[in-house]
Design a protein around this nucleic acid. Sequence first.
DNA 1: ACCTGAACACCGTTCAAGT
DNA 2: ACCTGAACACCGTTCAAGT
Lengths: 230, 230
Amino acid sequence: MTARREPISRERPAKPALSRRWIVDTAVRVMRSEGLGKVTMRRLAQELDTGPSSLYVYVANTAELHAAVLDSLLGEVDLTGRDGGGDWREQLRAVMTSYTQVLFEHPQLARAALVARPSGENYLRLVERILDLLSQSGAGREQVAWGVDKLLQDATATAAEQSTREHDPASGDDWNATVRALHAVDAGTHPAITAHMPALIDGSVPDRIRWSFDVLVNGITHTPVPGAGD
Amino acid sequence: MTARREPISRERPAKPALSRRWIVDTAVRVMRSEGLGKVTMRRLAQELDTGPSSLYVYVANTAELHAAVLDSLLGEVDLTGRDGGGDWREQLRAVMTSYTQVLFEHPQLARAALVARPSGENYLRLVERILDLLSQSGAGREQVAWGVDKLLQDATATAAEQSTREHDPASGDDWNATVRALHAVDAGTHPAITAHMPALIDGSVPDRIRWSFDVLVNGITHTPVPGAGD
DNA sequence: ACCTGAACACCGTTCAAGT
DNA sequence: ACCTGAACACCGTTCAAGT
């Protein structure tokens, strides 16, 4: 709506005006095609045909940019929970599964999420939905409020961990190093590890995710918060 | 006139031979004095009076180096749990609190831990101890094994998140952005957020950590794993 | 107000060559 | 076997200067 000066058309085909939205959209595109590692100020500036310093008018720093990219991706989360039944618990499970899936597709973002929490509209919509479903459990208000945090944190941390693991299994990555270390342990000095050994390493990712969800929901709904006498 | 080359002792005293141990110890020292951000291959090489490429004989990459630093720090965790009573639960709480405290003192390491899981002796000792205490709950072997993972993940993720929050509160950091966004939410479109609003943001860090521990322990001990018919 | 070039102060990793 | 110099291909952020 602003009366801008008439843009004189040059050879270069309409370089769009810089804006936060345009920067974030470009960042999402670069992320999808080349990964979050390429979403750098310099690379984006190049993509937007300007210098890196120009971006700082719209974006505080790289972490904030990554948080904005994450929020944008959060638009893909299915909030309906229609894969679940009518049960609030199964609906909540479906929403959390969808959230987890989005992060698993872009695992580097999960790491970013733990560092710079998003605060955009899609994040708020997600929190709203989880709160709504979890409060149907009948648990106290404080438990529900704190519980949402735990559910999101657990899913995010799991995706962040998996992000390393999914690298090619050929490379001596750190997860395999941990598995090897647990196997190589001495039964005399580490009897508990030895006793729990297959289980410590076993279990499919979906099984573990499903169990984690149940652990948290069971724990959240049965554990009153410190202050409130609910 | 052949100049006899004799190692005249100059100011520089006895450059010690490179070794993995020496590299990691130096990394820990740099981390303590200047933060993990300065623990880079180049900086370490400088500190060790060599070129960065030399380090690659002993360390695969930067992530592995950071994992080694973390394992070294894990030596500070109090495994006795003597702050707790005779109860396995209070002892376990004390161990987890000690672990959390160590990570809170070096929060950047918590982020590293989520990415590159450690596998050194101190990590194994910690896992052994938590397994031992948690199995005293009488829960099934699978629950205990998977539960240890959850307890460590929760504490680590919490420390990692806090690491951002603890930066100077003056700066418009992302946590404050989230708080602001939650406050600014419209009651019509986000009724659940509005209804849960003070609790969503409230609560001291120790209270939340204490509650998280109880949620997990309660959930772990009461939720059987998918396959096993315990 | 918005945008920029140029600079400052760094990075990880590889590789051919030396000892 | 171990170690290195040099190079390749990048980074984030600031700031004085321009429009």
